[in-house]
């Protein structure tokens, strides 16, 4: 009897969530898959197209470029950001009191900035004519480079800005992870004869591994879905060569009113994210053991 009542209470408590989840996620997702099988505008039913959209996807050069760009972006951001966040977190963890709070705030502040502000800041810093960072670019490249209008430097540039803007959050996760390692465990290792490097290799790193896996997974998923920052930087520029997958969906759906094919690309993204996430999760888990 109690069991049944428990179930009833659980159901009542979960109902609002389930309802919203169903209406705002499950239904649109199913509808998206259905839409991908139609030749349809963004609004309106259109007509049945079978697998035509998927055939088109297989031969779509822009889809290939967008996929390549997206994977390149993930490859540029996720590992670099994770390593940097861990290094910063280990630095921050050594600080105490207000200094730690201040330094942490410095790293976290960019994360709180709206993406549009991040875009404006770096767009200006790297401006070809007035950018204060252009002397550095010129020193490396030999001349001023329009970072966000040169196809080869676009993704590295956007990846750099993304890492700058989002590393604070990962630092926070790592810091929480580092704090969850009892001080006594590190002390025991020091007494056992571990120097800084041995301490990191044998104690800190293995114990922080679950956080590392989490940080990598969060970044993989969020960066596979990258849109806003790429959109802002290639806005009115060479979008074809530099766009991400989600941006391609945006363009197809909202600029070309090609709802059916946009849904097809969206399904492809869904599959890509799911497959890569599961793969990465398995990989990270096996390494963690």
């Amino acid at each position: 009897m109690t069991r049944r009542r428990d179930m009833a209470v659980a159901f009542i408590l979960l109902l609002p969530f389930l309802a919203i989840y169903g209406v705002a996620f499950v239904y649109p997702t199913i509808d998206m898959v259905v839409l991908s099988l139609r030749k349809a505008p963004l609004i309106g039913a259109g007509e049945w197209a079978g697998l035509d959209n998927y055939v088109r996807l297989a031969g779509d050069r822009l889809f290939r470029i967008a996929t390549r760009n997206t994977l390149w972006f993930v490859a540029l951001t996720a590992p670099a950001s994770t390593v940097l966040a861990l290094l910063l977190a280990m630095g921050v963890a050594r600080l105490r009191g207000w200094l730690q709070a201040a330094v942490l705030a410095c790293f976290f502040l960019p994360f709180m900035l709206p993406v549009s502000v991040v875009y404006l800041i770096w767009h200006w810093i790297l401006d070809t004519h007035f950018g204060i960072a252009q002397p550095i670019v010129a020193a490396v490249a030999g001349r001023s480079v329009s970072i966000f209008r040169t196809v080869s430097t676009f993704m590295p540039g956007v990846a750099f800005v993304t890492v700058w803007a989002t590393v604070g959050f990962s630092v926070l996760l790592f810091l929480a992870g580092l704090r969850s390692i009892p001080q006594e465990t590190s002390e025991a290792a020091r007494l056992d004869g571990a120097g800084r490097i041995a301490l990191f290799r044998h104690v800190t790193w293995p114990l922080i591994w679950p956080v590392t896996a989490l940080v990598l997974t969060i970044q993989l998923i969020s960066h596979l879905k990258v849109f806003d920052i790429v959109y802002l930087f290639n806005l009115r520029g060479r979008v074809d060569e530099t766009m991400s997958l989600v941006q391609y969906v945006f363009r197809l759906a909202f600029q070309q009113n090609d709802g059916g094919y946009a849904a097809t690309v969206a399904v492809a993204i869904l599959v890509l994210v799911a497959v890569l996430s599961v793969l990465q999760f398995q990989l990270l888990r096996s390494r963690g053991q």
Binding site: V151, N234, R236, V239, D240, R251, Q255
Partner: peptide
């Protein structure tokens, strides 16, 4: 503004005019 012709400008006319 922000429709396919403008996009095509970014993708094709912009690199053409800028010598890329």
């Amino acid at each position: 503004p922000a429709y396919p012709i403008y996009d095509a400008v970014g993708d094709f006319i912009l690199p053409a005019v800028n010598g890329e």
